[in-house]
Design a protein around this nucleic acid. Sequence first.
RNA 1: GCCGCGUUCGUCUAGUCCGGCCUAGGACGCCAGGUUUUCAUCCUGGAAAUCAUGGGUUCGAAUCCCAUACGCGGUACCA
Length: 501
Amino acid sequence: MSKIRIRFAPSPTGYMHIGNFRTALYGYLFAKKNNGDFILRIEDTDQKREVADALEKLIAIINWAGFEYCEGVYFEDGKIIEKGNFGPYTQSKRLEIYKKYALQLIEKEKAYYCFCTPERLEEMRQNQLVQKQAPMYDQCCLKLSSEEIKKRLENGEKYVIRQKINTKGSTIFNDLIRGKVEIKNELLDDQILLKSDGYPTYNFANVIDDHLMEISHVFRGEEYVSSTPKYIQLYENFGWQVPEVAHLPLLLNPDKSKLSKRQGDVAVEDYIKKGYLKEAIINFVAMLGWNPGEGSTQEIFTLEELVDKFDLAHVHKAGAVFDIKKLDWINSQWIKKLDFEDLFARTLPYYEKFLKTLPSPLTPLPNTGEKDSRSYLKKILTVERDRLQNLSEVGESNQFFFKDTNFDKELLRWKDMSDDDLKKSLEKSLAVLENITDENWTRENLEKILMEKAGENRGELLWPLRATLTGEKKSPSPFECAWVLGKEETLSRLKNAIGKI
RNA sequence: GCCGCGUUCGUCUAGUCCGGCCUAGGACGCCAGGUUUUCAUCCUGGAAAUCAUGGGUUCGAAUCCCAUACGCGGUACCA
């Protein structure tokens, strides 16, 4: 058996569609699992859709996700480069190759020149639609004599090259996910292989490149199922071996239509921006259409585990609705699971962004006895970690760590406490906290000492203290807050409140 | 319209190939209780699928066969 080679072949359209991302993931998993090659090819055959920087961004996402590939297009030292023995891997650099093969097909009478204008094609299509016929090319240019073709070519007339489809019988192919698929050939259109701008269509370039690059397995979305017979005819026309194909189920909107921009975010970049970890996105997207089978109830997977467990037999045939709630849950699981320093490094940008949204952050950050704000942020993250659904929420629900709190006597009051008792409670906290030395100012100690002092009626001591420190109804425990704020800031907030009662 | 593919709790799914262990299991979400001064985390429990529908085969069907319905996809000088 020849080597397994899978390619991921995106178009640089400006962003990475999450469905496309999953195609990349499955291809990567399958290649790795089977010790095969994973290759990145760029399908930039649509000049109208060219977007600046799209290629760099696309490669950045692949790298970010950790889908290592051994051949194809790379972005290194600010430059786009290519590596591998089957290049170029950028289709716009392969125009001569496509032309050569298209001409070969014409010689074999499996393709022909077509001079029809887009206008004529559109009119024809409308007529067919009105007559309730399937829109299909009428093979008008197939009837052209070789002299006429030669003349029009010499006149510099615009042309495309069309595939001459064999419409007899039907094509049967084995889909690795769906099993046998049969499509009648009479339904196939004489599709365009080479466009008038000299670029190939996706349909043509794919076949040529997959063969030339010795791709063994083609992974692509379900939307290509009905085009597959046309590709197979192409392989057969050239006398090439047809690769194995696997058509992946679609990702769906909540209304079951194909996942689209209109109903939420579809770009991987959007999810990164919102603070979803790559581990969570990969984990989630992998489970949309695949499961480990054998009664496994495991929900959280690393990339390595996925590589180990992945198999085509458990890929679903039906599309899967993209449920953001489950992504949120998986993300929160990963936030808890990740190594703290790693998590902090990834969270820092979100903290910095958050800091900028504050109208007047405490400047400098509360005097915590720390040398820099970074260690202060670390303490906050320790406290926030279990509460985060995604990284961009950082800081938001704990703004009191960054700015002064408003004094609200009613909030401070535990049940129907009198002003006098309230004051006594805060003074008691103050007295206790004042006696704790800087080195004993740890979360554990604060909890131990305060719980001890609070005794039976913990609410009477702890509620006013927490409310004083945070100015919020719902927030982390007073121990955590006092620990993060540090001794000096904690005492200052307490004294301030006592003075106002 | 035509063609293709699909259909198990609201959602992701196990089970389907090799019928009985399925009065259909897990997870998210939801609800209730416990833990917590509060929130979150965590723990326990609950509601939630007549296995799209109808027929057939069989002692027995989510599982095999047929039909129907519904959904989605394709039908481009887009990929």
